[in-house]
């Protein structure tokens, strides 16, 4: 263990208020408080635990987006809703706020509701179109956080 180890941030996540430089560059797409909780769980300098969590999330997200495409083409609204819920859970746990919010919208649209989930939307067509738009948006949001997180962990681009 030497000081030359590439450590993206100081081992000082406990002082979340101070906002370490690296975390602040996550911008508003990642909730630093939530994400720091994960970082606190790391036992080592390599951040093996959070790294594997984030990697797992990447895989999960890509697979889910793919399934959402399928759901759109088969017009399976309930499937789209549950996929939205599924990805919402893991993105929320990582503090990926933008992705989470979009996933929640997909969940609502899939349940034939409006974006807040309060009003019913009777038209399948409207819901599917909304999901389609939101899916495009959430992909962009995901790519943004993916870029940030990959830089943070020093992943090489796929």
């Amino acid at each position: 263990m030497t000081e030359t180890t590439t450590r993206p941030i100081e081992p000082s996540e406990d002082q979340s208020e101070d906002g370490t430089p690296d975390l602040s560059e996550f911008g508003d797409s990642i909730d630093p408080l939530v994400f720091e909780q994960i970082l606190e769980m790391d036992d080592d300098e390599e951040r093996e635990f959070s790294r594997s969590i984030v990697k797992g999330f990447f895989d999960q997200a890509v697979a889910t987006f793919k399934k959402m495409d399928d759901g759109l083409s088969s017009r399976d609204l309930s499937q789209l809703s549950s996929l939205g819920h599924f990805l919402k859970g893991s993105s929320a746990t990582l503090g990926l706020t933008k992705v989470r919010d979009s996933c929640e919208k997909i969940q609502h649209y899939g349940a034939k509701k409006d974006d807040t989930g309060t009003k019913d939307e009777p038209s399948d067509e409207v819901c599917l179109n909304r999901i389609k738009e939101t899916l495009t948006l959430v992909r962009e949001e995901y790519e943004e956080v993916e870029k940030v997180l990959k830089r943070f962990y020093g992943f090489t681009s796929p």
Binding site: G56, G89, S90
Partner: peptide, 16 residues
């Protein structure tokens, strides 16, 4: 928990 991310993090918290 069906979501692996939540499960792992939740488990880790509980472990701690």
């Amino acid at each position: 928990e069906d979501d692996p991310t939540c499960r792992r993090i939740g488990g880790k918290f509980l472990y701690s």
